[in-house]
Design a protein around this nucleic acid. Sequence first.
RNA 1: ACCCGGGUGGUGGAAUCGGUAGACACGCAGGACUUAAAAUCCUGUGGCUUUGCGGCUGUACGGGUUCAAGUCCCGUCCCGGGUACCA
Length: 921
Amino acid sequence: MHVGHPLGYIASDVVARFKRLQGFNVLHPMGFDAFGLPAEQYAIETGQHPAVTTDKNIERYKEQLKNIGFSYDWDREVKTCDPNYYKWTQWIFLKLYDSWFNPKTNKAESIDNLITLYEKGKKNQFGKPWNELTETEQQKELTQHRLAYKDESYINWCEALGTVLANDEVVNGVSERGGHPVERKLMSQWFLRITKYADRLLEGLETVDFSDSLKEMQKNWIGRSEGASVNFKLAEHPDNVVVFTTRPDTIFGVSFMVLAPEHPLVAQITSNEQKTTVADYVNYCKSRSELERKSETKEITGAFTGAYVQHPFTGKNIPIYVAEYVLMGYGTGAIMAVPCGDSRDHAFALKFGISIPNIFEGVDVSEKAYEEKTGKIANSSCDWFSIDGLTVQEAKQKVLEKLEDLEIGTKQINYRMRDAGFSRQRYWGEPFPISYKNEIVVADSLENLPITLPEVKSYKPSGDGKSPLSTIPEWVNMSNGNIRETDTMPGYAGSSWYYLRYMDPQNPDAFCEKQKSDYWQQVDLYIGGAEHAVGHLLYSRMWCKVLHDLGYINFDEPYKKLVNQGMITGPSQIIWRYNGTSDESKHSIWNTMPKIVNDIFNERYFIPFDKMYPIFFSSELIEKHETLRSNSSQLYIPIGNPDENKIVDINELYNYSIEKFEGVYVTEDGIFYKQRWIRNVGTPKFLSTLIENEKLSKSKLNTINPDDIVRSYGADAFRMYEMFLGPIEQSKPWNTKGIDGVSRFIKRFWDYCIDYDGTVLLNNEPANEASLKIINRILNKTKEDIEKYSFNTCVSSFMICLNELQAQKCRNREVFEKFLIMLSPFAPHTAEELWHRTGNTSTIIDAVYPSINEKYLKDSTFNYPISINGKTRTLMLFPNDASENDIKKAVLADTTVQKWIEGKTVKKFIFVKERIVNLVV
RNA sequence: ACCCGGGUGGUGGAAUCGGUAGACACGCAGGACUUAAAAUCCUGUGGCUUUGCGGCUGUACGGGUUCAAGUCCCGUCCCGGGUACCA
């Protein structure tokens, strides 16, 4: 754990404790999403069972959490890898499998409802009555509708590692580990039909309190676009080309069609003359990796098929091309190209010499496409139809209606989001409660759950693309002759519903009793990182909707309010290592880089070395010499204090790790090698480094362990400082020095209440008006600020409050007890201890947030800033009930004001009650 | 390229509806206490200018609206995040 992790936990703990003080019944749990790759990877490396290492890690993490004083209800702890938990993950999966999305009711229903519909005569893909279909055929049909279903899909297959890789294990087209080639391989996989929920996931966003950026990310991910599908009749061929377009208004601007290279029509329609060209091109596309297709976006490639479609309005022949810029996976894999309105089509037209008809009024499209959606349509008519002079919106509508009239197009909505892949060829995940009988899916019955993860000899992948489970014949081959599914579920399975389990963590008979979820309802506050924006958050929203549709819970959004905590960044320290090839860096720095040494020291210098060493450069040299920078790589170092200076002792580096840091150091002062200067100008042995503020991370060696902070400053100072750093959503740098401020505050608070000898310094005298005023105001501000998650300003207010009470010499118990209660969510240990020392016997956790006396929130006077032409010149105190006229008289008579308006006329007197007075002269 | 955030002293940040910019801290400087140091306390601290009072200027940059702009509008630049041949 590093200091970035607890930020959100502290914020939610403050809210939990505060709500408790206000009398709420607060559910504040913690749990562990413990299945997944890191544990499995570790198991492969060490041979230890992931369950063992996971438990160990959880224990360690809990220890660290407890060290910070969180008020978690540990009785509600959940672990997604616990069979008592994943029993219900499997149960929900079976519910998904046994449900379909009914478009008529717009919700999930039992698959039995669908079967009934088929029995009543609903059409199926085989064109036969339902009861005449074989079981395989029936299942095939139902598979098209189940919310969890099996389908063929491409995975990242790495032959060298003999395993399937997750997307983030593939970097630049090769495996992250070892850099082996990765290919796309078709495999049968489980999917969740989340696309059916696309619209409800979008609509649901309107009902929840998430940040704009997060909502935006989810919207982009779902990628809803409204448009039309249009049939273009092929010339001299019975088939149609079906395209999807968001701009039906540009239909008269179409000058060519493009099919994706994988499009099934390509082979059928290509003319004889073009056969070789197209085949070559398609092969070329196949040979190109995902990476190449992504990175080389400027290169325009394509081939003419020799075939044409007929324009539905003008009847003109339009050529059909194949090009890789059209993707098979989006829309229909075919587009109508409008070069005047789309920059990619424009570039393609220029390259292949295709005409660029202009359909926009008063716009020049010869150089680039006009992609704005404003202006009017022109040149868009035939004998029997015209949209000339219409706006984009009007034209869209009119074309769409006509297409529907002609029965060659319909309104269509397309989504970027795909169904979610739900299979992993891994060990450390939930087993599927699924087996196969003659290739037909058989779901385990609910009573048989959980299907527990069996012991396995090796956690290594099986080598043939299957999970390690496939290597256990006694598990795979069931007693009834069925074959078990050997894939496991992905990380987001368990995390999609854990908030429900917190409400009823021990229940052996239900994932969560309905009464319990009815009582607790949605999660009121969920604080988490933005990295889950489109994965976990979307999936859990979908699961919630399904469980709601099926009647298991009565809300259909899991999280009412979601706050994304910002990253905490920290200074990392970097040195530079020269990337000389082995050839050139033999034995001498002179041989290696004569030019550079010459540049730096203005002389040729030769140093014989007894072996080859890495060469490290001081940062200031890197900044001055471009050749050095481009030939050097950055290396994070673990020593020195980046808070204080940008230099590091070279000897210290040596001592830290001879293996890593023994080498030749080149600085402005000379060359340092084997702990002495070879060429020096007599200055200390320091190397200047580069300091970067970056996300805290092990690899950057800039993490700060909260245990260390707690040890030297205490948990309360640590908690308060994390809150004091700045707004919770913002990313901000950690500076250990800054913690002194809150640490001093806590000490000052203590010392003000308790004397050296332990005597309580508070008295029982009644508090004066001034003290009551400040404490009531801060009580009010703290309440307001916590409610808007502005924790940093709460901490400031506490400091202001103490400063003020000290200045007043206020030591009334009455005032300070209120202060302690207000402070307790932030600094629970200090508050609790002082609470007892000042004579209370119950815990401060059970205290009640003090009621606020409204009369102290308002002053009877206001100190008006008096400005002349908008610039404040003086301040004048007036009672709140003073009339504007009286104030005007007094202001005009004031000597400072007199000085500024002397010889000028006052044109206007602006008076805003309890805000400002402004004179315009 | 597109879509979201954001840009305020040396640093983290504050500023409710457009109404005293820089609260509260860190750091720094000076002082007190101490044989000394640490700790603690006091004073000062955006920049320029002035002996002082004060004046000018100032919220990335350029415009605009307004009696009044960190805040609203238009344009530009920079930083962070997300997405991407998405038709």
